[in-house]
Design a protein around this nucleic acid. Structure first.
Lengths: 329, 329
DNA sequence: GCAAAAAATACAAACGTTTGTATTTAGTGA
DNA sequence: TCACTAAATACAAACGTTTGTATTTTTTGC
């Protein structure tokens, strides 16, 4: 069922059919309607391959994300979809599991698909590689401020806010649970160092823990934490899952949160407000970032050189998992 | 940078270049290597549109899922990817947010892309629509046993297991928190009715609650539950998030879980083992389902008519959120 | 009713690959 | 060296659209 079949059925030239289907003014309204009806009736499905071939544009945007599982990225993707439809673009997603090889594969796929643009979140591959992408494609990085085109909200502000919140509550010994060594995680570490230094608080290497997502890992952190003397009175965890897990193991060991130790997370996942105690955390405007990144991409595609858009700042969400330190030790 | 450019550079015919790049035996080894080197050097990127056009096959599989956010589906997608690469297929994902219109859009996109197959998880659109898909594409449903081709594990067994687990613990009044009216959720409701009936336990309409994901909704359920007299001693929630939320609000109101009331969930999300108390739940072999569905799809594509594959059963995971009823009321 | 302008449609080439067939080149045995 | 076969390569058409240009048809103004 091709355009030619419809042309034959409508006793008209294929070129007229295309134009009719596109709603071109060049074809008589009556013909337009007749062709449209026929196409509908005959179950015509446009062949994107053929169209892409001649138009040199697929109407597709490739989205490369490291972890679908993370609601963070899911929210991002939704903001993108929302904006993309306004520009008649469609988003195809490729999950890389945070692996560099998969990221390369994803880029290869998208280049072959002749996507009109690329959105890359938390890229693992060094920036230099992206700068020399061939053929060049409009590309917007999410959360990579060093890239020539990117959309990021202030990546360090949220972490600073949460650390200052802890300081304001009276905490002077603050621990940190860090995630895997990904580019996106560095600002949290930087914020940790920066705030502690600025407040004149020292920090011990012992106060930095690494969480790998397992129960064992959480338990190990709790044990190490309890061994410390003096013990930190607050811990900032790099994401909500690790924060919630940590709270769990600490309570198991008899500590009260936040009375004995305050715990703060990052990301504001759905459950963060539903656990006991509800988690103090940072929410990023991922949906908005998604929308802006598509807008940005579109204007790059139009040959403009837009500046990085200003975005709403990450928001500190204070709940019950943080409070003033109650116990002296 | 097309195949013709390479042909010119290698002073050879375009057809030879294609064959060389495909590793065809028909072209001399020396030529193959020369062409490959040239292609690499000149930064050749195959044009999928052109290839798809003539081969009538894109090497793509379209995956339609209702909610990326759900780790359930993320796991599924990963199993699919893992299997797809073995068949030189690539997966493109489209999230529908569980909306029927978006599902139609996704199908349209994939048909236009000329995908080699379609994987549809928890479809909203009625089966009849899928049976008449035009042009016909190999299609495998996930969790829709009434479809001609589907991969599902026993959809009711996990729920039955968990309800029988509650019964075995001594619970005789068991409540149910149901999710939105999606096809995928019905078996849980069915299991609830079936087990209670089979055990000779009546169930009250009052024991069935609806959770919409908000804190308010959870609070409302807790209030309604506490108003009941006698109160159910156990509640089976349709997913882990609602179970965890429910536990939270119940504890806030002074109830002990599982002593006063046992709560069981479904899905085994990462956090289910990390909250307090760790959640009794059901794990589905989503990764395996993903793998099998791709295998199934491939054999359909080869013109076979495979039977629905046997899958590992859903697994009951007993943790601390369920126990024998302790309080008489 | 006629020329000119405008509107509607037809023609034809192009996009980059693949693939069946034809042609050239190399290799074999006598 | 020749005829014959096998190997390597070239030719050409096709896939379904789009789009610039040419042609036909209709409308307009007089």
């Amino acid at each position: 069922m091709t355009i030619k079949d419809i042309a034959r059925a409508a006793s008209v030239d294929p070129s007229t059919v295309t134009r009719a289907l596109q709603g071109s003014e060049r074809v008589k309204q009556a013909t337009r309607e007749r062709v449209a009806a026929l196409a509908e009736e005959m179950g015509y499905v446009p062949n994107m391959a053929a169209r892409t071939l001649v138009k040199r544009s697929s109407g597709l945007i490739g989205l490369v994300i490291p972890d679908m599982t993370n609601p963070f990225f899911a929210e991002l993707a939704r903001g993108m979809e929302n904006e993309a439809v306004k520009h008649d673009l469609r988003i195809v997603i490729n999950d890389t599991l945070g692996e560099e090889a998969a990221e390369r594969e994803a880029l290869k796929l998208f280049l072959e698909l002749e996507v009109d643009g690329l959105l890359v979140a938390m890229a693992r591959i060094p920036q230099g590689f992206y700068d020399e992408l061939d053929p060049p494609v409009p590309l917007v990085h999410i959360n990579r401020p060093e890239a020539s085109h990117h959309v990021s909200c202030d990546r360090i502000k949220g972490s600073i806010d949460i650390l200052e919140h802890l300081y304001a509550l009276g905490h002077r010994r603050i621990g940190f649970v860090r995630g895997p060594a990904q580019p996106g995680n560095e600002p949290k570490m930087a914020a940790y160092r920066q705030v502690l230094e600025q407040k004149g608080l020292g920090y011990e290497p012992d106060w930095i823990f690494r969480f790998d997502g397992s129960t064992d890992s959480a338990a190990h952190i709790a044990d190490r934490l309890l061994d410390l003397s003096p013990m930190p009175t607050a811990v900032f965890a790099w994401n909500d899952v690790s924060a919630i897990a940590l709270i769990h193991v600490l309570r198991e060991r008899g500590l009260r949160v936040p009375d004995d130790v305050s715990i703060a997370g990052h990301d504001n996942i759905q459950l963060s407000g539903l656990v006991e105690p509800p988690l103090t955390t940072v929410a990023w405007p991922m949906y908005e970032i998604g929308q802006h990144s598509v807008r940005h991409l579109v204007s790059i595609g139009q040959g403009k050189s837009p500046r990085a858009p200003r975005l709403p700042a990450p928001q500190l969400i204070v709940r019950a998992s943080t409070g003033s330190p109650k116990t002296a030790r």
